[in-house]
Design a protein around this nucleic acid. Structure first.
Length: 428
RNA sequence: GGAGGGAUGGCAGAGCGGCCGAAUGCACCGGUCUUGAAAACCGGCGGGCGAGAGCCCCGUGGGUUCAAAUCCCACUCCCUCCGCCA
């Protein structure tokens, strides 16, 4: 959630910032109107409550003094005021619910530094690494679904039989490769990040904290019977890990990482980029996440990008880093970068990591605060996260990049420790 | 799934429908004392909203009442036992 106070004290600037993200100005105006109305109602309600509370205390005093007549009179007064109070309270509660519902749907304010733009076509490319198109041979221009089928390491047909379209199944060294990628990502970040294995079925409250609910319910798998949701990313449970808690500033930044399966219905993307492993309903990912003070956040954003990028680089893949323009920024995002890996067989740049800074947007929803070591009170933390490594697309780019002209796929050096001595994946 | 017990401040733990945002102990912070520390003593010590007066928060939501931590209902979670089971 955005800070409603920023709409009170800095209305025009906040509205303008939200307009960069294509927020309907009418929604912003409505939020301010509801907030004003709520505060009026709350003030009136609180004044009545104060009177009722005072009268009630006097009733008790009169009773103790044995003055029943005064007590009865005060009681009648209090009852009358109480009736008025409850009407105002009902009205205030209704306005508050409307305001909250609206606020949960208003996106985060983008960073002033986020570049202008409307769509992903406007995202500036910051750098390109390891990419030299002329160096890819014909043997690398085979899409991974063909390589996977030929080597018997990717069994899409049977995955469809088991679970339907857009599910995948790795086999033999292909499964080892998927797991090795996760292990590599965890190992590379274990110097600073605590490894967590969180639950992957979560409550609605958990999914609301990170921003998936209420707006994007259609994108997530929901288990009706138990009212639980399958996580689309480990960001969801890791962010709620500290929900409703107050951290010590000394504990910040807090760095967490988790390997989990991720579940996405991909409701709005039927038919787009769905061949092979490009878009699947279930995949494995290692997520890295941090809680920071506002001051620590920019450096943490850089750190997360560097870590995500470093793993792709260690795998010897061609990739590029792009910054997300305001028009393409997700609802909760303040500033984001994507890492896209080049898959020579598909001849496509595939998004394999999205690293984002959420400012206090998620922290406000999740009520995650810290106690500053200087000064009084509490303040909201900032949350940041990114994929350290998402399996399917990296798997795809990797088998395409490391395919030799004899059809086998070489295991990259970085993954050798996880391959039980195997150096090359060959047809069975 | 069945039966029973429970949920109060960082922790432990009192709490009669009104004098309870809440005793007490521990922890923590400041001070006195001390060469320093400990002990002792004194003081402080939850969070949220609000410009403020003030209001709200005793698991959550609802109800009864002039008045609810306290009574009633529902739900959630925890503990014990039974059943099932990686």
């Amino acid at each position: 959630m955005i800070d409603i106070r920023s709409l009170r004290t800095d209305f025009e600037a906040t509205k303008a910032a939200l307009a960069r993200k294509k927020v309907d100005p009418a929604d912003v105006d409505r939020a301010v109107a509801l907030d004003g109305r709520l505060r009026d109602l709350a003030t009136q309600r609180d004044e009545l409550r104060a009177q009722v509370n005072t009268l009630s205390k006097q009733v008790g005093q009169a009773r103790r003094d044995g003055d029943a007549a005064t007590g009865d009179q005060l009681m009648a007064d209090s009852r009358r005021l109480g009736d008025e109070e409850s009407k105002l309270a009902d009205e205030a509660a209704a306005v508050e619910a409307d305001l909250r519902d609206l606020l949960l749907r208003i996106p985060n304010v983008p960073s002033d530094s986020a570049p202008d733009g409307d769509t992903d076509a406007d995202n500036p490319v910051l750098r390109i690494q390891n990419y030299a198109p002329e160096r890819f041979g014909d043997h690398q221009r085979i899409p991974h679904w063909e390589i996977g089928a030929a080597l018997g390491i990717l069994d899409l047909e049977r995955a469809v039989k088991i679970s339907g379209s857009m599910f995948s199944m790795f086999r033999g060294p292909g499964a080892t490769l998927a797991r090795a990628l996760c292990q590599l990502a965890l190992d590379r970040n274990a110097d600073a990040f605590e490894e967590v294995r969180p639950p992957t079925l979560v409550t609605s409250a958990t999914l609301t904290a990170t921003g998936q609910l209420p707006k994007f319910a259609d994108d997530a798998y929901h288990i009706e019977r138990d009212d639980l949701w399958a996580v689309p990313t480990a960001e969801v449970p890791l962010t709620s890990l500290a929900r409703d808690e107050i951290l010590d500033e000394a504990d910040l930044p807090t760095r967490l990482m988790a390997y989990t399966p991720c579940y996405r219905r991909e409701a709005g993307s039927a038919g787009r980029d769905t061949r092979g492993l490009l878009r699947v309903h279930e995949f494995d990912k290692v997520e890295i996440l941090a809680y920071t003070t506002p001051e620590q956040a920019p450096a943490m954003l850089d750190e997360l990008v560097a870590r995500a990028e470093g793993t792709i680089d260690a795998l010897g893949l061609a990739y590029r880093v792009i910054e997300i323009c305001v028009g393409d920024l997700g609802q909760s995002h303040h500033r984001s970068y994507d890492i896209e890996v080049y898959a020579p067989g598909c001849d496509m740049w595939l998004e394999v990591s999205s690293v984002s800074w959420f400012s206090d947007y998620q922290a406000r929803r999740a009520n995650i605060r810290y106690r500053p070591s200087e000064g009084k009170g509490t303040a909201l933390v900032h949350t940041l996260n990114g994929s350290a490594l998402a399996v399917p697309r990296v798997w795809a780019a990797l088998v395409e990049t490391y395919r030799r002209d004899d059809g086998s796929v070489v295991v990259p050096d970085a993954l050798r420790p996880y391959f039980r001595g195997m150096e090359r994946i060959e047809a069975r």
